[in-house]
Computed example of a mutant assay.
Amino acid sequence: MDDAEPILLHEPDFMLAVLRAAREGPARLDDAVARLRAHLAAAGEPLALAPEELTRRFEEAARLLEGACAIVPADDGRYRLTPRGVRLLAEHPDGIDQSVLRTFPEFRAFMATTSRPGPEDDPRLPAFHAGMQAFAERRALSDNPFASDTPDHLAWECGWSEARDEALRR
């Protein structure tokens, strides 16, 4: 049986391609695209993304990596790795995503200034903020006021946990 379904590409694939393209010196996003195409071709997989979507995904990966201080702009639209980018490649050879980047205070600050979700973007944001407030008020995780099988319960728990993690990082 032939499974002709194309491979799914995820954020770590794009971030790794961006970082690996600049491993030897300043690179362009086109270099990262070529690297990903070659990797997929070696695996016998097609690149099943429209050119606009491919460009958008690589630009987003580069934007996030720059926000984490893993790459910096070089000349002529190129970018280069920073020591942090080199370290990320060494420590995470199988993939880098936002959960890895969030360990850096620069990335958290970058995200706070560039993406301000509002209630119209995420209907669970009030529950998330309520969970953060509950941690600040020294309430227990078990004090979650939402039914355990609801999205609001999870959002509240995520907010509480995020506040706890922030407190532990200080």
Rank of each mutant, 00 (worst) to 15 (best):
M1T: 12
H10N: 04
E11W: 12
E11H: 07
A17F: 13
V18A: 07
R20D: 08
A21I: 05
A22N: 01
R23S: 00
G25W: 06
V33Q: 08
A38M: 15
G44P: 02
P46Y: 02
P46Q: 03
L47H: 09
A48K: 08
A50P: 01
E52S: 07
E52K: 03
E53K: 06
L54T: 00
A61D: 02
A62R: 08
R63H: 14
L65K: 03
L81Q: 10
T82G: 12
P83K: 09
E91H: 10
E91W: 11
H92S: 03
D94R: 11
G95Y: 04
I96S: 10
I96R: 09
Q98C: 11
V100T: 12
R102V: 14
P105H: 11
E106Y: 05
A109T: 13
S115T: 14
D121P: 01
D122W: 15
R124A: 12
P126T: 08
A127G: 14
A127T: 15
H129V: 12
G131Y: 12
A134T: 04
A134D: 09
F135C: 06
A136P: 00
R138E: 03
R138L: 00
R139Q: 15
A140R: 05
A140V: 01
F146N: 12
D152F: 13
A155C: 06
A155G: 05
C158T: 13
S161T: 15
S161R: 13
A163K: 07
D165Q: 04
E166F: 02
A167S: 06
L168G: 03
R170M: 05
